[in-house]
Design a protein around this nucleic acid. Structure first.
Length: 680
DNA sequence: AACATGCCGGTTTTT
DNA sequence: CCGGCATGTT
């Protein structure tokens, strides 16, 4: 096969070692995606049926890219017969096809904000004010426990303090509501699919038999259930190829278990281990910095990235008075480079540890009229209008979805007040009937006005008639929006015609999505549309987008994983920020170091590290200290003097440059007319 | 149902 | 210091 010739020896070995367990340790920028896609093409070339190949990723973006690239190699038609997708997409497919084997009927999916709502009500039931424990934190604890295969009951038994006990109680209620609603959260999707796959007979057995070649991307991000799923499928034929980089494991706090990639050779005897260490992305100077930082981590697969791109310029360091100067310096420099024609906006990325750091950069970019894209933040699908419509769609698929029902029962207003709703909910639990049937029998609930009861019955009837409708997906969705008179709701909620039009455009967008989905998807049902909406809600198109949109990219280090930019500013290299104070307290410095490593290795040609002398946090200004990671990669203490905004400073550890440039005359920025004195 | 007040907390976030 | 939320007021 011809493409093999374009691979380096290690890559080729990773592609052609098709039998048995294989661990590919792919350092940053070493052509990981290339290897996986060529490997799939190679298997097909050797006569393996596409249906026997399973490739799992963590994000939709990765799946999309992989599908595209396999398609380029073997043709779209053949590629479409392979399964390439996220764990969750794979599991949902299984559950929809074979869910009945484990007693699962139709279900809807709870996304993050649904989970928070359900959890809030669970906490109220257990009489915990959400001030004493914050829902997001409880949710993350529950998720971590689910990942370790605890149940609410076993968690209660294992609880060692009041707090854990309380979490277990809340979890139990949370679970009950989801069950009642026939709703699965993201963890349940994996756990249920695992239960299905573990069954000795039926679909479980058929699937184990079917997938002769299994591949997992970003293996270092695998959590407990995902590991079990892979294991359950791949044990049969034993041809499991996992690709990842333990040095880029940055989702430990979310349950990703770096131990899985560290112990692969132990988990799968006779595993072939292949290291990809030739980096095609960054200059030698940049990789030196990366290597020197990461080698401080214990417990890792030893790797050293070697550059294929030449030495390059030194990594630069920049010390600013405060966060405003830091932003002004970075943005000013970007502006000058672009104005001078040396670079384009899209060449630059500004990376930071925490979200709030973006604010001051945004302000500066805006003031300087620099086009930028901030990655992250509120998704299109978090808008009220979208969530309302999604709730309606969920109700069509699953009448028992309580959250969806409560969300839209009085939206647009139908004269069903809070008091009535509470009484009906009480009625439902007293009688032990589902919430939807309680609403259907609202007229027999004491204290509910006849008009409200009639409105409930009416509403349920409308939903029923919508369920029976036939037509194309987009017409069904449009029909729904029309029937419930959602336009009126939008008009009612916003005062000006302008705002209304703007809000309505989001609704229009859903219709576009629907049409799009119908054309691409195999089935194009409301159910499959919903799954796509919920699972791919946060999909970002960062890499494709920001470059050709020609804007500076602003994002957190987490969001930057997998991306690359010619020029990178890694900002806020300070104790308390990177490493984050909380990580220091919790003794998870290793993961912070990997985060720094991820940041450094995003840069192709130029890397600039910045820090401040003092920084405002929680409204108070405090002196900041250089990050320990700066010491690690220079081997010497960082210089104590600061460089005024706008001046380039060569890296410490590159003696020639240091001597010649360090004394360069500095032109003060006018902004700093009244210089604050730096704390000594 | 819409607005005011008061309190707490303040990493990272995909599916 | 700022935002989010829960609670309390009209």
């Amino acid at each position: 096969m011809k493409i093999l010739e374009s691979l380096n020896p290690q890559q080729r070995r990773a592609v052609t070692t098709t039998e048995g367990p294989v661990l590919v340790l792919a350092g940053a920028g070493t052509g990981k995606t290339r290897v996986i896609t060529v490997r799939m093409a190679y298997l097909l070339h050797r006569g393996v049926e596409p249906e026997a190949i399973l490739a799992m990723t963590f994000t939709n973006k990765a799946a999309r890219e992989m599908r595209q690239r396999v398609g380029d190699l073997v043709g779209a038609k053949k590629a479409s017969r392979l399964f390439v997708g996220t764990f969750h997409a794979f599991c949902i497919d299984l559950l929809r096809q074979y869910g009945s084997e484990i007693g699962l009927g139709r279900f809807t999916i709870s996304d993050g904000s649904d989970q928070v709502s359900v959890l809030r009500s669970a906490m109220r039931e257990v009489n915990v004010a959400s001030v004493s424990m914050q829902p997001a934190q409880v949710l993350s604890r529950i998720s971590l426990m689910k990942g370790r295969l605890f149940t609410p009951d076993s968690a209660l038994e294992a609880a060692t303090d009041d707090r854990e006990e309380l979490v277990a109680h809340v979890w139990k209620r949370y679970d009950e509501q989801l069950r009642r609603s026939r709703s699965l959260d993201f963890d349940d999707i994996l756990l249920q699919a695992l239960a299905l796959l573990k069954r000795k007979k039926g679909a479980g057995d058929a699937l184990r038999e079917r997938y002769r070649y299994v591949m997992v991307d970003e293996y270092q991000d695998t959590n407990g259930p995902q590991y079990e799923i892979v294991n359950a499928i791949a044990r049969r034929h034993g041809n499991l190829c996992v690709v990842g980089d333990d040095d880029q494991s940055i989702y430990g706090w979310r349950g990703a278990d770096i131990g899985k990639i560290l112990s692969f050779e132990h988990d799968y005897r006779n595993a072939t281990v292949i290291k990809l260490e030739t980096n095609y992305r960054s200059t030698e100077e940049i990789l030196d910095a990366a290597n020197r930082v990461i080698r401080n981590n214990p417990n890792r697969h030893d790797k050293t990235l070697r550059s294929h791109a030449g030495k390059g310029g030194p990594v630069r360091r920049f010390l600013a008075l405060d966060e405003n100067e830091e932003a002004a310096g970075v943005v000013g420099e970007i502006r000058r480079r672009v104005d001078a024609g040396e670079a384009a906006w899209g060449d630059f990325a500004i990376l930071f540890r925490t979200g709030p750091q973006a604010r001051v950069f945004e302000a500066e970019l805006r003031a300087e009229k620099v086009p930028y894209t901030l990655v992250g933040g509120m998704s299109f699908f978090d808008r009220k209008e979208i969530r309302d419509i999604v709730a309606y769609l969920k109700l069509l698929v699953n009448a028992d979805d309580e959250l969806a029902l409560l969300r839209v029962i009085n939206c647009p207003p139908r004269g069903i007040g809070k008091a009535s709703i509470d009484r009906i909910l009480q009625f439902s639990s007293d009688q032990g009937i589902t919430v939807s049937s309680a609403f259907a029998r609202a007229s027999s609930v004491e204290g509910v006005p006849a008009a409200a009861a009639a409105a409930c019955a009416d509403f349920l009837r409308v939903l029923d008639s919508l369920r029976k409708k036939k037509g194309s997906l987009e017409n069904l969705v449009a029909g729904l929006i029309d029937t419930v008179n959602y336009r009126a709701e939008v008009d009612r909620s916003y005062p000006t015609a302008e705002m209304q039009a703007q809000r309505w455009s989001a609704v229009d967008e859903v219709l576009n999505f629907a049409e799009n989905h119908r054309r691409r998807a195999k089935e194009g049902t409301i159910e499959s549309f919903l799954h796509e909406l919920v699972l791919e809600a946060n999909d970002d198109f960062t890499s494709e987008d920001s470059r050709n949109r020609s804007s500076v990219t602003l994002m957190t280090l987490h969001a930057a994983k997998g991306l690359e930019y010619p020029r990178v500013y890694l900002v806020g290299l300070e104790e308390g920020l990177l490493p984050h104070a909380r990580a220091v307290a919790e003794d998870s410095i290793d993961e912070e170091r990997r985060l720094a490593y991820v940041g450094i290795t995003r840069a192709r040609e130029e890397l600039t590290l910045t820090r401040t002398r003092s920084r405002a946090r929680h409204g108070h200004r405090a002196p900041s200290m250089a990050s320990r990671f700066l010491y690690e990669f220079t081997g010497t203490p960082p210089p104590d003097d600061w460089i005024p905004a706008g001046e380039d400073r060569p890296v410490v550890g590159s003696p020639k440059a240091k001597a010649s440039k360090a004394q360069r005359k500095v032109t003060p920025r006018k902004k700093r007319a009244a210089p604050r004195r730096a704390a000594r």
